[in-house]
Structures are given as structure tokens and as C-alpha cells.
Amino acid sequence: MAVVFKKNKELEAQIDEYLDLLIRGGLVFKQGVKLYLEERNEEFEDQLQELRRIEEKGDDLRRHIETNLYLKTLIPESRGDVLGLLESADKVLNMITENLLEFSVEIPEIPKDLHPVFLDLSKHAIDASDGMVKAIRAYFRDLAAVRDNINQVLFYRKETNKIAEKFKRFVFRQDLRLSHRIHMRYFAYHIEQIAEESEDVCDRLAIATIKRYI
């Protein structure tokens, strides 16, 4: 029995480590966007590489956790939900990484007067994903706190939508090439999707939480 407790403790630490990676990914993304807008390209590329490493490590860790959950037949009644949550949370991290990569590949031109709005958009999108991570953590330890964290995610998702809309309205009223406007809209849309995806994870989490109440 002591072996079971020890194995479970190890897996518990791995899940916490995985969730830490999601938080770190969000921080690196915010920093990366800031560096890009400040045209500190070398540092930006370093951040992108760091984010890629985090994403790869996250993938490995997630696979390891999933395999162990099945091999050791742990939490049989919640295993499906946990695997689903980890996989959908992983999609958020992938989305964050892809977004920063697109900056490196497509080099979008963002006018200086739009930088604060763009930074605000990134910050709120990452706030939503951070809230999602907190909600997932609470799902494992403190069911009563899940609801509060989900509400935060909903709030940040709405704020992200508002900022993205404001950004797009502003962009499409500028005297810029249509391709330029569409390109900026594309970036705003994809950053907005981070918050949308985080909300989808939380919807899933809300159901999983109801199932966990005895």
C-alpha cells in the first residue's frame, strides 16, 4: 500500500509540474510579444525557443502522466476526464507556442499606437489560460474553488473578446493596405483563440467537477 501512496505522490508531482509548464508558457508568450513589439529580435527568438522547449517538455510529461494513469489503473472513475482535461489544456499551450512562432515567421507590422492594445490583448488571453490552469489545479485538490476560477476565465475571455474587437475595429478604420489590415486581424484573432480555447477547457472542467462530487 505504501508503494501505491508513493507512486501516486510521484504522479501528483508530475501533474503539478505539467501545470507549472502551462503557466510558464503563458509568461514566456507575454514576454515574447513585448520583445517583438520593442523589436528586440534576438531576445524574442530566445523566448520563442524557450517556449518551444516548454511545449515539448509539456508533451512528454503529459504522455507520461497519461500512460501511468492507465498502466497503474489510477482514479478509474475520473481517468477519462483527467486525460481529456490534460489533452485540451495541452492544445492551449500548443496554440500559445504557434502564435509566437507566427510572429517569427510572418513578422506582422503593428503600428506603434496599437502596441498598448495588442499587449493588453495578449495579457488578457494569457490571464484566461492562467485561470484555466488554476481551475484544473483546484479540480485535483479543492473542488469548491473550481467554480471561482472558471468564473475568472469567463471574465478574461469576455475582456479578450472586447479588446480584440476594439483592435480590429481600429485597424480596419486605418488608412492601411487591406492585406496589412487582414494580417493584423489574423494575429488578433489567433491570440483571442487562446482565451476561447481556455474557456472550452473550463466548460469541460465544469462537467468533470460535477461528476466528482459524491
Binding site: 501512496f5 501533474i15 482514479i75
Partner: peptide, 12 residues
Amino acid sequence: GSIRIHMLQLDA
């Protein structure tokens, strides 16, 4: 409801 135990510990 009152204890904050990890799901995996609860499982054990």
C-alpha cells in the same frame, strides 16, 4: 468537502 486532498491521494 472540508479537506483539500489531491485526487490521487484520495484514490490511494
